[in-house]
Design a protein around this nucleic acid. Sequence first.
DNA 1: CATAATCTTGACACCGGTTACCGATTAAGA
DNA 2: TCTTAATCGGTAACCGGTGTCAAGATTATG
Lengths: 345, 345
Amino acid sequence: MQKTGQPTINDVARIAGVSKKTVSRVINRSPLLNDDTRKRVEDVIGELGYIPNPQARALALRRNFLIGLVHDNPNAQTVLNVQQGMLEALQGTEFEMVVRPLDRGSATMLDDLRHFLERQRLFGVLLMPPVSENDSVAKLCDSIGCRYVRMGSAVIDDSEHMVASNDREAVRTATEYLIEQGHRRIGLVAGPHGFRSARERRLGFEDALAAAGIALPRSMIADGNYTFESGLVAAERLLDVMPRPTAIFSSNDEMAAGIIHAARQRGLDIPRDLSIIGFDDTPIAAHVWPPLTTVRWPIASMARSAALKLIAGADDGSDLVEEPSLFLSTLIRRASVSPPADADT
Amino acid sequence: MQKTGQPTINDVARIAGVSKKTVSRVINRSPLLNDDTRKRVEDVIGELGYIPNPQARALALRRNFLIGLVHDNPNAQTVLNVQQGMLEALQGTEFEMVVRPLDRGSATMLDDLRHFLERQRLFGVLLMPPVSENDSVAKLCDSIGCRYVRMGSAVIDDSEHMVASNDREAVRTATEYLIEQGHRRIGLVAGPHGFRSARERRLGFEDALAAAGIALPRSMIADGNYTFESGLVAAERLLDVMPRPTAIFSSNDEMAAGIIHAARQRGLDIPRDLSIIGFDDTPIAAHVWPPLTTVRWPIASMARSAALKLIAGADDGSDLVEEPSLFLSTLIRRASVSPPADADT
DNA sequence: CATAATCTTGACACCGGTTACCGATTAAGA
DNA sequence: TCTTAATCGGTAACCGGTGTCAAGATTATG
């Protein structure tokens, strides 16, 4: 009788002349096992092309091998970078990634997430900003008994549950660079309220100006929501102020692209009339003209690290190389910054 | 003794005073079941918050509830749109999406994919372009016994395995629009070789010109690879030709954005000096200045339909509403097209 | 050489659901 | 009343792996 489908552990055991338990030992690399037996079983496995059934394994081990990526981030490139970094970490393991976009602002968001976690009984979840900044989401994971790691722009949880970048410091450095170049009238296009990243970046901006003794009038701050349009609108406002700012720090690249457009529509030359620094270093930063000086946000590395943190201890703690929890962003100097044309300090 | 963990089917059966078989019947919506009993069991399920263990179900039913999204598309927005559409279709079902990016051009791509499919024993996979255009990938799925649905820009498989847009016709319509506006010297920035979409779009462009009796000199065609930079480079070439084209069709939006930049660097006004049409209608199309006239590619709807096609027949064929296989793209008229300034026909 | 300690290995129950088979109970129809 | 059908339970086997525990083989020790 022709066996259909994949070979099972029983087939391997029968052909190798051992018990299924022994085959199981081979699969799980049990150390208490004769080398000859192991070799023989491995040969049969290779010959048959046997692959253990993940569902059966999951059932017997009482845990599955699914890791969730929970996100409500509007930036496609960012989400994909995170997926990329996460999958890198999962590469070679038996874990798979399942993706769960959340509808930010939806009243049922928390219930949706609970339902998702309970149904699938995930091994763990990786929380992307901005949903990762929501403490009740973390509490929910805890109460369900689902491991989680949060990604964010500031440390808001212990190192076991958090992978963060240091946006405040990075923006401070970037702003200091503008000051070093001679800028004194520097505008800020801030991110949306409720985003921790927006807050941290704004704080870093204020830090730098305060340290340099530069006043920051309210008129030099415009709100945005991380979209191209909002950057454009915010720039209209800032560029209406007289005297005009000679430089603008934008809380992300997308808005910086909007600022560039607004400036160009007014006939301003970048960087001669207006210097701009963005944040993220998404592809758009290199595409705009002139190429955007920006802060590189290592989101893919963060995701990779977060995923490793999540699955650490899943195996026998063999590779318990403590994953870093804090990532430093670096300033990428391109062509959108120069000293101000009118040195009027 | 305090029971830890989730309630099992046995708990439900005991409390409801029925057998686990009956509970199973309720879960699987067996028709031969008294309404009273069903109600009682459902109440207990709700009370306990019982959720069937997906792994155990998958094991017993000999199939799992994972659907793969296989992609090697470089456009983040496109990939995310597909994920969005796919998850919409999976909403409310017991299926989950696992994502598998493939390294295009990698020699081991096919082996990677095989390994993935065999390990996870997916219920099915959704193939995104351009990998979906690879027949050996489809053959691989077949040989492994994994259902698949391909997405693409032309019908290259039977309707059971294919969801396609009609790019050729859409581009023909778009090009005809340029001709109607009075353009006669129309350039094409083509997509990369090996992309079916690139070929279809080029054919549609040629169709329109041939039908209008307009010659298409080789100098009016420039190759690109769907990136911003390649669009910029291609535009440099086309705009060097004398007499200059008065309009350019770009095979995607990203390249169209590059073309806009190139034109602006030369001091050309869009659309007065140069009309441009793109393809995809990604967010970038609305962000550039002027807003880009483009062809809307309903990729999210296609993904949704593809996913539904994939899981159709998973249930008892109850909802066998034949999913559409062909999607029509529509022309979105914005501000990047006008009649040519120099009517020299 | 006897005995203990160690290494290998297999029998068996179990994870949490499923189906198959058969029997029991109840209700409806003849 | 008897037949028939619908509804449900009991038991058992099964999906394809895992843990426990003890037996048999091997080696070290007295």
